[in-house]
């Protein structure tokens, strides 16, 4: 019998009723207290989670349980605790190659003229 992974447990408890806003480092500050999602580059794992760099080159601290092993890029879905930190519900490995610049521009569009398609 395979043990249920802790990832799955967290997903089931997670409240997905709120949409998660696409953000980069700069946009994170506008959504403190709200559900956000972003793709970050792992700088170093630490005790409570990891330190990372956003697609617009800002430092973001992610708290919560991390998958192991971690790839270079991970997607974090969770609640923005402050302008520089996210409490993660779901962390997904996005691999070692990811176009950070494309994602960064998408975040700007999704919070700009095309906001109504996303939130």
């Amino acid at each position: 019998m395979k043990k249920k992974s802790p990832d799955l447990n967290r997903q089931q408890e997670m409240d997905t009723s709120n949409p998660a806003v696409l953000v980069n480092g700069d946009l994170l500050r506008s959504y403190v207290g709200r559900r956000v999602r972003t793709v970050i580059q792992v700088v170093r794992p630490d005790a409570g989670g990891l330190t990372s760099r956003s697609t617009d080159e800002q430092q973001i601290v992610v708290k919560g349980q991390m998958p192991s092993p971690l790839t270079t890029f991970v997607e974090v879905i969770g609640v923005a605790e402050s302008a520089q930190s996210i409490r993660a519900d779901i962390v997904t490995n996005f691999g070692d190659t990811f176009d950070a610049n494309n994602f960064n521009q998408l975040c700007q569009h999704a919070n700009g003229d095309f906001r109504h398609l996303f939130i």
């Binding site: 696409l22 793709v39 890029f73 997607e75 996005f94 691999g95 990811f98 176009d99 494309n102 994602f103 998408l106 569009h109 999704a110 095309f114 398609l117 996303f118």
Partner: peptide, 17 residues
């Protein structure tokens, strides 16, 4: 499997719109 596809999909949504 290639996660750029997620970015691409949302850009395609914007383009279609």
């Amino acid at each position: 499997t290639n996660f750029d596809e997620i970015t691409f999909h949302f850009i395609a949504c914007i383009h279609n719109h």
